[in-house]
């Protein structure tokens, strides 16, 4: 569990970083918070020849809040998100989810961009990005492009990023005033990888009905997934106990999780529904206030 040999560079600009990754031809990897790549290397599961540390690149920093929404630089750390009082108002689902990320020490180092690029299906951030229709800004040798969250995750620990592309920022659309939301996950110990988790939000119309429903789940498939059947069960309904029950049942019915050493498939399938039921109960209580 000692690190294999590798070279290290910490360029001061995005273009230099992209050039280094390009030259690495797939054998170079960006380093952001290092909370996943370094343990993976220590386990000798990956042995990149070069780590390109993004810490010195100013373009990757900062949280910008505007009428259009929120833009968070890729190197913004979990701690920065939790410390930002405005985010609790303008994008409250995000900090609520980030509270569940690992432990204090990891939250001090881990970054939003690193988590999205790492694409661990058990991570909170990919599921939140999916639920909130986030757009991922990336830059590579061929220039800039935007990737919708739904198009980023292609499998467990794999994305549609090419080897020379770096995530620059994540954009979240503006948060409507009448939006209900909640994030729920269950882990064996606080801070462990969740056995399952859900992010849910919807807008409440004048008649109190749920509109623009978005529900995503983590740790239930190879990628974070939208729970479309649960969304359909909610869309246009007043989120009372019956509606919540229907959404919960739909969520359990539509997922097909795998079992592992921590939990059976059968348990995870039921757990998704249980967690969505709890999330929606809290979400509804929030709008009632």
């Amino acid at each position: 569990m000692k690190l294999p040999q590798f070279d290290y560079q910490a360029p001061a600009s995005l273009s230099e970083a992209v050039a280094l990754l390009m030259a690495g031809n797939g054998d170079a990897r960006p380093l952001s918070g290092g909370q996943s790549i370094l343990p993976i290397m220590a386990f000798r599961l990956a042995e990149p020849s070069l780590l390109v540390d993004l810490r010195n690149i100013p373009d990757l920093r900062g949280i910008e809040i505007s009428a259009a929404g929120v833009r968070i630089g890729a190197m913004v750390r979990w701690r920065d998100i939790l410390d930002n009082a405005q985010l609790k108002v303008v994008l409250p689902l995000l900090p609520e989810a980030i509270e569940h990320v690992a432990h204090y020490q990891v939250r001090n180092r881990g970054t939003i961009g690193g988590s999205l690029a790492h694409a661990d299906p058990a991570s909170e951030m990919p599921a939140v990005a999916l639920a909130l229709d986030a757009v991922i800004e990336v830059v590579g040798a061929k220039g800039k492009r935007d990737i919708a969250a739904g198009d980023l995750f292609t499998g467990s620990l794999s994305t549609s990023l090419s080897h020379d592309e770096i995530i620059v920022a994540v954009r979240f659309p503006a948060w409507p005033a009448a939006r209900a939301y909640a994030f729920e996950e269950f882990a064996r110990r606080r801070g462990d990888f969740a056995l399952a988790g859900v992010a849910a939000c919807y807008d409440v119309d004048a008649q109190g009905r749920a509109k623009n429903v978005r529900v995503s789940a983590l740790s239930i498939a190879d990628t974070p997934i939208r729970l479309k059947a649960a969304e359909a069960a909610m869309e246009g309904r007043v989120m009372d106990a019956d509606a919540i029950k229907a959404a919960s049942a739909a969520a359990s019915a539509e997922v097909d999780p795998a079992g592992d050493i921590h939990a059976s498939a059968r348990y995870r399938k039921a757990l998704v529904g249980t967690l969505l039921g709890r999330a929606l109960t809290r979400a509804a209580a929030r709008t009632a206030r």
């Binding site: 064996r188 110990r189 606080r190 462990d192 990888f193 050493i261 921590h262």
Partner: peptide
């Protein structure tokens, strides 16, 4: 009682390789 277990597969390989899988009390 709750979390720790050294799990093997049928080939006798240990499936627990780190403290992310062997869950001790914190």
């Amino acid at each position: 009682v709750f979390t720790e277990e050294l799990i093997y597969n049928d080939e006798g390989q240990l499936l627990v390789g780190s403290l992310a899988d062997y869950l001790i009390p914190t």
